[in-house]
């Protein structure tokens, strides 16, 4: 099997005259945690929206490894739900849970693309549908246990504390059995304690072989979690490497802190 799970070639996205992404290359290997960082407005979330099919990129190719084989599939032109079906699941920067559904149901929605009962199944509740429903329940509950939300099972999602809502987003994405999990600023707005717990959770998920690509502003978290880091600014990739390399990279320092006046 190939080691690359996601391969992005020359991804470009124009909004009218603004080039939000400029010929971006990125790759994620199996089992890796890769971080995508950059100043505000660098185009990180746009990048996520492009590869998950919410935006149609102007140019460029996105390939995702096909499960169980050596080939990869192009994600170009697929709808968001088809992308998820192919194995790319994401969370959102601004939490987008289904507020008036219970915590368990939120996760059960994640199982949607891996199950298939439809109108007739729902009405007649034949054996296959009942079994499927049971398996949805069990898997969803197991995922909730994994992220530590099992005490909230029947709670409405919008009644959860903030940190728990973030975890629920992760749980919901995990329920789709993704090959690659995209986390869009999972630690945004969290207090230090919640961030530590989140770090533990991400490490735990990763230790089970889950490949992860995350956008994050919390540098301590990024440095301790990631195997590799990509740095973006103004829609361009300005650096790429291990956390140590990135920390010393002059281009990165320049992007974040500005240029020295004397230079």
């Amino acid at each position: 099997m190939n080691t690359q799970i996601l391969k992005v070639n020359g991804l470009t996205m124009d909004f009218g005259g603004i080039r939000a992404l400029n010929s971006l290359d990125l790759d994620v290997n199996r089992g890796e945690i890769v971080a995508l960082i950059g100043p505000n407005g660098a185009g990180k979330t746009t990048f996520f929206n492009c590869i998950t099919g919410i935006y149609a990129p102007t140019e460029g190719e996105v390939y995702l490894a096909a499960p169980g084989s050596d080939t990869s599939v192009s994600l170009k032109g697929l709808k968001p739900n088809q992308v998820t079906e192919k194995g790319l699941a994401r969370t959102f920067q601004n939490i987008r849970l289904f507020a008036k559904m219970t915590v368990l149901e939120n996760v059960m929605i994640g199982r949607h693309c891996r199950t298939k009962a439809f109108v007739l199944g729902a009405v007649f509740r034949n054996k296959a549908t009942r079994d499927e429903e049971q398996s949805i329940l069990e898997t969803s509950y197991a995922i909730l246990q994994k992220v530590g939300l099992e005490q909230y099972v029947n709670e409405f999602a919008n009644n959860l504390p903030y940190g728990a809502q973030r975890r629920l987003e992760v749980a919901r994405a995990l329920a789709t059995e993704p090959l690659l999990l995209l986390l869009d600023e999972p630690a945004a707005g969290m207090n230090p304690q919640e961030t530590i717990e989140l770090e533990k959770l991400i490490k735990e998920i990763s230790s089970e072989g889950q490949s992860i690509l995350l956008i994050e502003h919390d540098m301590t978290l990024v440095m301790s979690l990631s195997d590799r880091i990509f740095v973006m600014d103004y829609g361009k990739k300005i650096a790429e490497g291990t956390p140590v390399e990135i920390r010393e990279n002059p281009a990165v320092i320049k992007a974040y802190l500005g240029e020295d006046v004397d230079a």
Partner: peptide, 19 residues
Amino acid sequence: RAWIALREDEIACQAMGID
């Protein structure tokens, strides 16, 4: 469930793999 998810948040709903 898919209907209710659609009512709650269309984009999240699609991102979760609902057609």
